[in-house]
Every structure is written in C-alpha cells, then in structure tokens.
Design a binder for these strands. Structure first.
Lengths: 198, 198, 198, 198
DNA sequence: TATGAATGAGGTTTCATTCAT
DNA sequence: AATGAATGAAACCTCATTCAT
C-alpha cells in the first residue's frame, strides 16, 4: 500500500540526515552552539527549518549527535595509529597530519566549542569527561615510550610530552578550523621538532 | 548635601569605566561576543545593567573599545621587543613568555573572538584588518633576520618562520584563555625548539 | 491487478470516514479543539496523517462535521422522549439516563468544547446558536408541564426547572466525559430529587 | 543611592504580580493552559509580553502559582465551614453558596483544567494528587455525619453523599466559570434537595 | 487510495536597550 | 550617577497543511 517502499524512504531519510549533519558541523564549527541559529543550518542544508525537526528534535540533540561522532572519530584515529607503517616517529607524524587535515578539523573545533561554551547540554559534558585528554594520553603512551627507547624523541616524562604536543596541535586545529586569513598552519616537520631528538 | 565637585565626578566616571572594562574583558574572553550578556558584565562589575549604558552606548561599543585597547597592547608588545636585553633569541623568548602570560591572554582571546565571530561590528573588522598578522610579521622581521644571521634560529623564509611560530603561540593562547582542564601549556623552551637551531 | 470497482471504493471511503470520525470524537472530547493534534486523530484511527486530508479538508471541517452529528443526536434524543413509555417523570428519568450514558457523553463534551473554546469556526457558532438551550427547553416544555400537572415534580416556572436541571446534567456530563478519577456521577434517582415532588 | 527606595520597588513588584495573576486566572480559566497564549495574558494585564517574564519565568510557572493559590483557597474554604454559624445543613448551604460564587469559580475552573489537560506541569499533577476529592471528603465527613444525626439530610453512606454532591457542584462551577449564555445556575435551595431530608 | 517528507505561520522565551524615578 | 521595571525584535520549536510518489 505504501507509495514509496520502505527502502526508498529509508534512503531518503539517511541522505537528509547526512545532509543536515554535514551542514550543521560546518556552522557549529564556525560559530559554536549559541552563535548557531537553526535557520543557518537549514539554509546551509538547503531545507526548511521545520524539516530539521523531523530529523533532530532540538538544537541540543543535533549538537550532541555531532559530538558523539566526533568523539568516536578522534578515538578511532588515536587507536588506529598503531596500525600505521613505519618507525614510532613516523606514526606520530602520520597521526599529526591526520589531525591537522582539513576534513578532520571541524570535528575538532566542535569538541573545542563543547569544552568552552556554556549552553552545552549535560549529555555532552559527560561525553567530554569520558573522552578527555587523559584518555588520549593513555592511548598514546606506549607509542611515545617506544619512540623514546628508539632515541627518536627527547627524554623526559612521556605524559608531559604528549599533553604538550597535543595542546599545540589542538591550538592549531582551533585556529585552522575557522579558516581565517592570516594564520599559517606550520609544517608537520616543524611541529615534530617540538619533540624530536636533534 | 553639597554635590560632588566636578573633579570628583570625573574620577568616579573614570573608575567606573575601568571597572566595567575589566569585567567585560573577563566575560567576553570566555564567552565571546554572542555568548556574553550585558547582565553578565554588569554582575561581574557589581553594578546594575542600566548603568552600563551610561558609560557605553551598546554592547558593540564596549566590545570595540576593548579590541582597540587590545590591539594597541599587542602592537606595543611587539614594538617593545627591541628594547629588551639579550641576544635576538633571548628577545624572542621574552616576547613568547609575555604572550603566554596569564594577564595577556584575555586580550588575545578577545582578538580571537573578533576574528572568528560573526556578530562583530564593522568597525572592529576594520581594526583587525589594519592590525593583522602581516603587521606583526613586519614588525618582527628585523629581529628574526638578526637571529638567523647570529645562527640562533633555523634558516629559511623568515616570514614563514614568524607566521608559523605566531600561529602556534596564538593557538596556545586561545586554549589557555579558556582555562580549561586538560590542556597543558608547553614550556617556552620547548616552543623555541620550533625555530631554534639544534 | 484489476483495480477495485467503484462500489468497493465507495465502501472503503465510507468505512475510513467513520473510522476517522470515531477516532476524532474520542480525542476532541478529551482535549478540545486546540489541544487536539491531527496526528493524534490519525494515530487513534490507525492511519497516516496525510490520509486525513483526503477525507476532511481541515481540522475545522472535521470538528464541524462532528458537531453537526452531535447536534442532530441531541435533538433526536429530546424529541424521542415523548415516544418513551411510562409516566412523565419516568420519561424524564429515561432521558436523564440516556444523557449520562457513557456513549452519549463524548458528543456532549464536544458541544461543551464548541461552546467554550475560541478557536471554533464560525459555522459551528451558528450551529450552536440555532441549537441552544432554549431549543431544548421548548422541546421539553410539554413534558415538564405534564409532569407538574400530574403532581410528579415541583411547582414553579417549568422553563427555570428545565434549564436548571439540564445545567446540572450538563455539568456532570462534562466531568464524566473526561473520565477523571475522583468525581462520582450521582445516581439518577438522586438527581431526580432536584425536581421531584417529595 | 537607589533612585527608588526599596519599599517603593517592592510595592511596584507586588502590584504588577497581582495584576498579572489576576489577568492570568481570567484567561486560563476560560481557555486552559494550551489555549492560553502569553500574549493574551499580557494584553489582559495591559503590559508587554516581555514583562511577564520578569515576574514569572514561564507559562508553566505562572499556571502552577495559580493552582497553588487555588488549592489553598479551596482547602481553606472547606476547613472554614466548621466556623460558620447555624445548623449543619446551614453550614453546607453556606459552603455551597461560596463555591458557586462568581469570585470563586475561576479558581475552580483552573483546577478543572489542571485535572483534564495534558500540557500540565508535573508539579501541578502532584499538587492535584495531594489535594484530591478524597481530601475534601474527609474534611467534610464530620459535618455530613452531624447533619445525618440531626436528621437534616438523607441516610446512607456519607462519603457517597459528599462526593456526589461535590460532583454536582463541580460540574456547575465548570459551566459557570465559562460565563456562557444558556446555562442556568440552579438555586442553592434546589441543590440542597439532592441531599436534604424531605 | 495511501504515505510521510516537506513547508511555514505562529507561539514561547531571551535579552539588548530605554526610561521613569 | 544609579537602579531596575518595561519594551520588542529575534530566536527556538510545534503542528496544520501540502505534495511527490
């Protein structure tokens, strides 16, 4: 009886959902949760604002969904670093490039907004608490220890090394995600000097 | 019941003005222009929101005033670097420390918000355009050239070196200004490795 | 794949129509015209909300249709009272029971909503004006006069007697139609004491 | 320093609050919580809709405040019945008149809406549960028992007597509160026949 | 006939700004 | 100078209604 079969409907829903998520991440990344108006997302996605609410029940839910995805992505990236080929520092280099990559930064910017804004839903606060810097450090600890043993990076507390290095990367990602004139993303090889043994 | 004389009134006005500006920079730095409500500034300054409008005609004007001050401060800091004692890289080191210093970052955060937000008055956009990264680069160019000639920092385009190095500092200031748990501000000496000759 | 013939289609249309009207009266009775969403009616009827608009062009039309039916039903009930067996007060008793009867109250509740709400279409207002309390009074006047002459009910203006008695019944129907805990529908015999000669 | 002293401000706030509550009860009583728009209350009170939110943080809170008052009023009325002069049935008569009195009915209508509507805040549901019909019955039980012993009202379960009688009163209040043409509020003496011994 | 995606008018709520005192 | 009551534009969200399939 149905005029469109279930599969077609499912496909439309999925496409629209992705379309909205894609539009939302763009706008949220640039403007944060308060600065983003639902009408902006709708306009970016090329749909009416009413339709947003067929797919996400509120601005909060939309934001939370994106944060969840971003968290998963960030986690996967750090986990996946061990699968990469090469010496330890080559793996760190590859991870750095991935993090600074254009496509990844909006997600990172989103996390930045989630950390720093105030109108952020409680669910997101929990998510962030569970996926905080310490989790990253722990996941990267074996890799940095290995690199130290191989004499590829400087001595000293590997935890501090990781958190300092990630902070530099984070700061750059935040700047980069805005797409602002004037800032220059440094070369990965320049960044590696922060930790590399001379 | 003799009224205050003109001088006393003038003094009150000036004190209040500073009080408001101090409160405003704190709040703006943390929340950006959209996320900041006039009532927050009033509360931070310990006055009524109505009184704000005796001193600044709008949120825009208040923000713009702060940006102007911040620009001047940043300019002064880079100009002043030549007066500092020591070798070129010691001057760069001192400038870096000043930029990352707690007291300076709110101003920097403000500029960051001004660059990245959209609800920013046109006057501010002009200010930013006039004081952009290129201006900084030009002011620091002699210093970096000198450092290269002294063999203290690496070879290569000094412009690129400056803009990369300032971008790293900027990113860190942005993170730092938020006062968020988890991020670790790297040591200045670690940062200098980005540009220092091994 | 032969399409249904015209008669079958007609039958489907009629069934659907009744199905929708039945669902609508339930929901409207409980929630009134503003509180009722088209999606509620669709859900109650087990169809899609889009289909509602094949049968009724708007919420207004649906509501109006129900009111028309309810009015006719109420009129028929009061007219039919004369056909009932027994003495006058026995007829009044039977009419009272019918009005308080579970199945009749949703219609009455509907009329109540139509009287008291504001989002009510003009056509409904006209309907109500034409079928108002006075019409009921006039139709019941002979019956009550007869009952007075038979010494079964108290003396006094029969019009006032009827309108007071109907108001009590109406109030109870309104309470009853909501199906709320706590209210107790009085016995018909108790109610008859309002008008019965001791 | 304050341009208006505290007392004057307090008085303004109190007056406005009462003004708003008075306007709100009128509109809520007629239209229920969903049917009432904040702009209607503002218009009725002769103020801007924005000002409503200086005094009540939401439509919910405004409604809840009114319900609390209404509950207290209803409770006080039934408690106070024992202080009234006269025989038991005279006290019941006085209570009945008070309940049907013009000024009391909007409050009662409010409770009716709270009971029957769906958009009602949870806090209100709790309030209603705590002040339900059973509470009324218990408070009136001694009075009705006394009246039975004095032979003033009919025999039988006093609980049923009370709840039936209160239901009739409730139904009438609901009709009455709407101020609709056509319904006639019966005489108190007529109503007393429901329970009075012949 | 039947479905549910899509639209947009209208309601609730927030907050920058004005103004009487 | 100082306060806080008051206003209204603009944002979020709901839901009656339309329309492609």
């Amino acid at each position: 009886m149905a005029p469109l079969n279930e599969e077609q409907l499912h496909q439309i829903r999925d496409e629209r959902r992705e379309q909205i998520l894609g539009a939302a991440i763009k706008v949220f990344a640039r403007r944060g949760i308060i600065g983003t108006k639902m009408s902006m997302i709708a306009a970016e996605a090329g749909i009416s604002h009413g339709l947003l609410y067929h797919y996400f029940s509120s601005k909060e839910e939309l934001f939370t969904t994106l944060i969840e995805d971003a968290m998963e992505g960030a986690e996967a990236a750090t986990r996946g670093v061990y699968e990469l080929p090469g010496t330890p520092i080559e793996k760190i280099r590859a991870l750095s490039m991935e993090m600074l990559d254009e496509s990844g930064t909006p997600y990172f910017m989103l996390i930045h907004h989630a950390r720093t804004s105030d109108g952020v839903p409680d669910k997101v606060k929990e998510l962030i608490d569970r996926h905080d810097m310490n989790a990253f450090i722990e996941r990267l600890l074996p890799l940095f220890r290995e690199a130290q043993q191989a004499g590829e990076i400087v001595e000293g507390s590997p935890e501090e090394l990781i958190s300092s290095y990630l902070s530099v990367l984070s700061g750059l990602m935040v700047l980069n995600a805005q797409g602002i004139e004037g800032y220059r993303l440094p070369d990965v090889d320049m960044l590696l000097r922060l930790i590399a043994r001379p």
